[in-house]
């Protein structure tokens, strides 16, 4: 992979957009790659702990037909391609009781920003992917997201956030957020230093994984030797974690309510309790 590709988020100095491909290739080395019509969406089929799995990643493609989606962004083509690859699995396994698992390698710097994208309805393309992943989960496919790099905003909604389980590498370059720091500073009329200061008291605003984990949105945080250049040990650790999650997901475990247990999600629980108490009106 070309090391000169830089993430579009200028606030990060590390080159991390290749992580998705690195991890995808590492985990699927022995497996059948399955070419899609969209080179930025990589798919491989295989097994993990005896369970049939489909691995899916969105990766950079410098020759992307849509110029504003070259760096691993989730754009029009990616949204639809993800949806189709997942729909195909749902359809193929319709009659099976043992549904294939979906393993999502997540390193998505953002959704694609552009005139063509908006005009053609990129929101609808991302919705196609969201819909496919949620349908897969709700129809009994174990869906596991493995965060190896950025998991940003709309891109993460489309590729990762509908998973039953979320596993993340404990590494600086792994980040979940609604907006890159530079853009967030502009929009909220603060400096990046002020944002960092605020993040110490406001965990949902923080860019570090530990704060994010306190929201209950990560099931397993893995300490690897190198997130960029994974070692054999790292590979084993990740495979063990994926296997453990697969075994943990029971056939009726098709919702995402477990995310509400996080330490810093008290209000999310409180609101649901109130709604439930008032729902019937008696």
């Amino acid at each position: 992979m070309n090391n000169s590709i830089h993430s579009i988020n200028a606030s990060s100095t590390t080159d991390i957009t290749c992580r998705g491909l690195t991890w995808f290739e590492l985990l699927t080395k022995q497996l059948d790659k399955h070419s899609t019509q969209v080179p930025s969406v990589q798919v491989a089929d295989g097994e993990l702990a005896g369970r049939a799995c489909r691995f899916i990643a969105v990766v950079p493609d410098l020759n992307n037909h849509f110029p504003r989606a070259k760096n691993g962004e989730v754009g029009l083509l990616e949204g639809i391609a993800l949806a189709r690859e997942v729909q195909a699995v749902i359809k193929a396994d319709e009659q099976q009781s043992d549904k294939r698992a979906l393993i999502l390698v997540v390193d998505v710097p953002s959704q694609a920003y552009g005139r063509r994208e908006e005009t053609l309805g990129i929101h609808q393309a991302l919705a196609a992917a969201v819909s496919a992943y949620a349908n897969a989960r709700q129809s009994g496919h174990p869906v596991i997201a493995l965060l190896v790099g950025k998991a940003m905003s709309g891109a993460y909604l489309a590729h990762g956030y509908q998973a039953n389980r979320i596993i993340a590498l404990s590494d600086e370059g792994v980040m979940v957020h609604a907006m890159g720091k530079a853009a967030a500073a502009r929009v909220t009329q603060r400096t990046e230093a002020e944002l960092d200061q605020l993040a110490k008291e406001i965990p949902p605003m923080a860019y570090d994984l530990k704060s994010y984990a306190s929201l209950g949105l990560i099931d397993n945080l893995l300490s690897v030797e190198s997130a960029c250049h994974p070692t054999e040990n790292d590979k084993q650790l990740v495979e063990q974690a994926l296997t453990a999650s697969l075994l943990d997901i029971q056939p009726n475990d098709i919702g995402i309510a477990r995310r509400l247990n996080g330490e810093n999600r008290e209000a999310s629980r409180h609101v649901r309790d109130l709604l439930k108490a008032q729902w019937s009106g008696d």
Binding site: V130, S131, A134, N135, R137, Q138, S153, Y156, L157, Y161, Q162, V176, H177, A178, M179, A184, V187, T188, I202, P203, P204, M205, A206, Y212, L215, L217, G255, I256, R259, N264, R265, S268
Partner: peptide, 24 residues
Amino acid sequence: GGVRLQEANLGLAAIAEIQSAIIS
């Protein structure tokens, strides 16, 4: 406008939950 940036990651998480519920 989408996620409230002052509550960033909890807004994003809530939107994922809204989406899951719409699909159900």
